[in-house]
C-alpha cells in the first residue's frame, strides 16, 4: 500500500489559518489501512484542529467526510454537491487524492494533511516499512524476492557495501542491510553464483527519471 504520515498540526493549522469553514476529507484506501487518513484519523484531526482554534479564540467549523477512494474520479464525483460549501478542503489521502480533487474541482482549494512516504506494508502493528521504489522494471526475482533498489540506501545492484555491519546498514542501526539478507539467503541455498556477475546498468526510463508515467490498458479504455 501507499504509506503516509500525518503532517504536524502546526503545519496544517498554518495552511488553514485564514479559513472558518472547512472540510476534512478522508480516504478508505491505503491511508485507512495505514491508519493515517481513514474515518478515525479524520475525526481526530478535526477535533484537534477545533481545539486549537478554540484556544486561539477563532472558532472554525469543520465537517468531516470519508470517501471510498480519492484516486478515483467516480468517487471524487460524489463530492459535487458539497465541496463548494467550504472555504477549503483538507485531504487526508496520499498525494494522489488532493490532485484528483484539484483537477475535478478547479475552483476549490485542497490542502494535503499528510506526507506521502513510500510503498510498503506493516511489518508489525504500528510499524510500516518500505518495500518498493516503483522503478518500473522489477528485478526482485534475481534477489530471491528482496529489492535492493528500494531497500539498499544506495540502491546498489552489487552489494553489500563496506558499511554493512552485523546485518545492519551504515545509515542507522534500525535499518537492515538488505544486501546482507540477499547474500545470506543465496549462501544458505547454495546459489551464490547468481550474484557473481556484473549486471548491466539499470534503465531508469521506466522509473520517475523517464518523466511522469502513464499506464494504458487498451482492453479497458472506452
Amino acid at each position: 500500500m501507499i504509506v503516509a504520515d500525518r503532517k504536524s498540526l502546526e503545519e496544517i493549522l498554518s495552511m488553514i489559518k485564514d479559513y472558518k469553514n472547512i472540510m476534512v476529507l478522508g480516504c478508505k484506501g491505503c491511508v485507512t489501512v495505514c491508519n493515517v487518513g481513514g474515518e478515525k484519523e479524520v475525526s481526530i484531526l478535526a477535533s484537534a484542529l477545533r481545539i486549537a482554534r478554540q484556544k486561539e479564540g477563532r472558532e472554525i467549523n469543520i465537517d468531516t467526510k470519508v470517501i471510498e477512494r480519492q484516486c478515483d474520479n467516480e468517487y471524487v464525483a460524489q463530492l459535487k454537491e458539497t465541496v463548494g460549501n467550504y472555504e477549503a478542503v483538507v485531504s487526508m489521502a496520499c498525494g494522489v487524492g488532493p490532485q484528483f480533487l484539484s483537477e475535478a474541482y478547479r475552483e476549490q482549494k485542497f490542502y494535503p494533511a499528510v506526507n506521502t512516504t513510500f510503498f510498503g506494508g506493516a511489518v508489525t502493528h504500528g510499524i510500516w516499512e518500505e518495500r518498493c521504489a516503483g522503478c518500473g522494471t522489477c528485478i526482485i526475482h534475481d534477489f530471491d524476492g528482496l529489492c535492493p533498489v528500494a531497500r539498499c540506501a544506495k540502491s546498489l545492484l552489487h552489494g553489500p557495501c563496506g558499511g554493512s555491519s552485523k546485518g545492519k546498514c551504515e545509515i542507522s542501526k534500525e535499518t537492515i542491510c538488505i544486501w546482507d539478507s540477499i547474500v545470506s539467503k543465496k549462501m544458505e541455498q547454495g546459489r551464490l553464483n547468481d550474484l557473481l556477475k556484473v549486471r548491466a546498468v539499470k534503465d531508469w526510463r521506466t522509473a520517475r527519471d523517464g518523466g511522469p508515467r502513464r499506464s494504458i490498458r487498451e482492453e479497458l479504455t472506452q
Binding site: K154, S155, C161, E170, K202
Partner: peptide, 28 residues
C-alpha cells in the same frame, strides 16, 4: 567507489544519485 551515504556528511538533505554502482563504474 560507491561513496559514503550522504547522511554522514554535511549536506544530509541532498538527493543521492546512485544511477550506477561501483561495480558498474569499474566496468564503465
Amino acid at each position: 567507489l560507491s561513496g559514503d551515504h550522504q547522511s554522514f556528511g554535511n549536506h544530509p538533505e541532498a538527493k543521492n544519485v546512485h544511477d550506477i554502482d561501483s561495480m558498474q563504474l569499474i566496468n564503465l
